[in-house]
Amino acid sequence: MLVRKIPLRRMPSLSNMVKMMDYNLVRSKRKTLALYVRQDGSLEVRAPLKTSKGYIEDFIKQKQDWITATRSKLSDRQETKKTVQISAADAARYKKQAKEYLQLKCRYYSELMGLRPSAVRINSAKTRWGSCNGKGEINFTFRLIFAPEELIDYVVVHELAHLKEMNHSSSFWAVVEQTMPDYRERRKRLREHQHQFEFIVT
């Protein structure tokens, strides 16, 4: 998912110049407007609670070139992505293998980092490699075991770091870097890997 954030400021009205595109609006107690182009090409706008609809739509029209370019990039990635179909039985088998393998990985890096999850679980998530909740439970998608080992290691260290910092602040990345100094390169490669394959359970 690609995102562009812009601070709120006064903009000229474009309501009569450009046709408005469809979008999904999410309001929250944020201070800036943000545009998100989803993997399916849909547009999501996140806005402060009191921002007017007219202001939001002027903002979207100002950024139409960026939106179009981003959608084109996502379309190109989708065209080059390889689709791998697996049966439900194979998926169950891969989940079992993933659980055994990733528990070993977590045990190894837990010793290095001094951070221990309360549980390690495997799911079938399609868009997230892993997650960590407030109870200290870590979840991984079974699809992770198809990634190169150095990228699997990065995801494991990333999720373990959340046991100490439940955010993506500079403090969080410092925890990751302490164990994995080259995490930036691994993170970049993981994003590239994510756009190369799509696993479908039939």
Rank of each mutant, 00 (worst) to 15 (best):
73 K>L: 15
53 K>R: 06
22 D>L: 09
68 T>K: 04
55 Y>N: 00
78 Q>E: 12
7 P>L: 06
27 R>W: 10
66 W>L: 07
49 L>V: 14
9 R>S: 04
84 V>H: 08
68 T>C: 05
71 R>N: 11
25 L>G: 01
14 L>K: 03
25 L>T: 03
78 Q>L: 13
10 R>M: 12
64 Q>K: 04
52 S>E: 06
85 Q>N: 08
7 P>E: 03
61 K>P: 00
20 M>V: 13
72 S>K: 15
51 T>E: 03
67 I>S: 03
71 R>P: 11
5 K>N: 04
19 K>S: 11
34 A>S: 07
40 D>S: 06
4 R>N: 09
3 V>M: 09
4 R>Y: 07
30 R>C: 13
26 V>S: 04
31 K>G: 06
82 K>L: 12
32 T>I: 14
51 T>M: 00
72 S>N: 13
26 V>H: 13
55 Y>C: 01
70 T>N: 04
20 M>I: 15
70 T>A: 09
51 T>D: 01
40 D>W: 07
14 L>Y: 05
31 K>Q: 10
43 L>P: 07
18 V>Y: 08
32 T>Y: 09
32 T>S: 13
6 I>E: 11
9 R>A: 05
46 R>L: 08
66 W>E: 00
24 N>F: 15
20 M>T: 14
59 F>I: 04
49 L>N: 01
25 L>E: 00
38 R>T: 09
22 D>H: 06
32 T>Q: 08
78 Q>H: 06
17 M>L: 15
8 L>C: 10
55 Y>Q: 04
56 I>C: 04
81 K>Q: 15
9 R>Y: 11
4 R>L: 11
50 K>Q: 05
34 A>I: 10
48 P>Y: 04
22 D>E: 10
32 T>H: 11
32 T>N: 12
11 M>T: 10
60 I>W: 00
14 L>A: 02
16 N>T: 14
72 S>R: 12
23 Y>A: 01
61 K>E: 03
46 R>T: 06
56 I>V: 15
75 S>G: 04
83 T>L: 11
38 R>M: 14
6 I>L: 02
55 Y>L: 05
58 D>M: 03
84 V>I: 15
